[in-house]
Amino acid sequence: MKLRKIIEFIIEKLIFLCGVASILFVILIFAFLLKEGISFFKEVSFGKFIGGRYWYPISEPPQFGILPLILGSLLVTLGAIIVSVPLSIAAAFYISEVAPIKMKDILKAGIEMLAAIPSVVLGFIGMVTLVPWIKKAFHLPTGLTAFSGSIMLGLMAMPTIISISEDAINAVPKSYKEGALALGATRWQAMYRVVIHAAMPGIIAATMLGIGRVIGETMAVMMITGNAAVIPHTFLQPVRTLTATIAAEMGETVHGSMHYYSLFAIGIILFVITFIINFTADIFLHRNRK
């Protein structure tokens, strides 16, 4: 009896520790980022960093403007949203409302597989198929563009958006649909006039989480967006994202140099952006539950 109590106690504390650890890690990561990044802001003002138009970290004197990188990230992300959100919502509707049960299972398994493909592999596939195709289709000097990145990232965001949207659609009370059908609505009318309204908070949250994934994605973007740190004007130009910059340059910097610290400063910016996005998604998810 006593032993049981002790075991219970230990298990309880262990679980508690696991929970605390996850929070602790996040705090530690952020603290580390801050520590490394802060010394950068002693030298370069925050405004100049965010608003600077040129990213020449190793020229003399160096220029640390990440505006082109931020715009690059935003452009690729925006494109990915345009590519993935309508498709994902349509897919979620198809899966939850239209597809026969067998098809449903096949599709769900397929979507999980899509989520499991490593981004390097997707990036590689994009590089050998999509990139040459875009170059040819739009008569460009190079197929490594923001648009190519958007398509690949859109593909990567789709599993998240589809599965969470589908949950939201499934959570819509059946009585809404029945009420609509009883009034003579077709299945399609019931969906877009009623069900989508009821599921909207969940769909928005799904989209936000998908965006969160896209913004943080590195490997595939680095491989197919061309990595030119210039302010982009169209989707059909090479761009460079925040994440790709960190990944590409971290290996080449001297530990402790300004360049080194600047990459941590970029990390802080990324952290803040993803945090805001996830936080917003959370708000919508909770609103949905109420």
Binding site: S175, Y176, E178, G179, A180, L181, A182, L183, G184, H197
Partner: peptide, 16 residues
Amino acid sequence: RKKVGMVFQRPNPFPL
């Protein structure tokens, strides 16, 4: 269904 309306056991107004 236009000619024959229905009212359900649990009130089910749309979330509109």
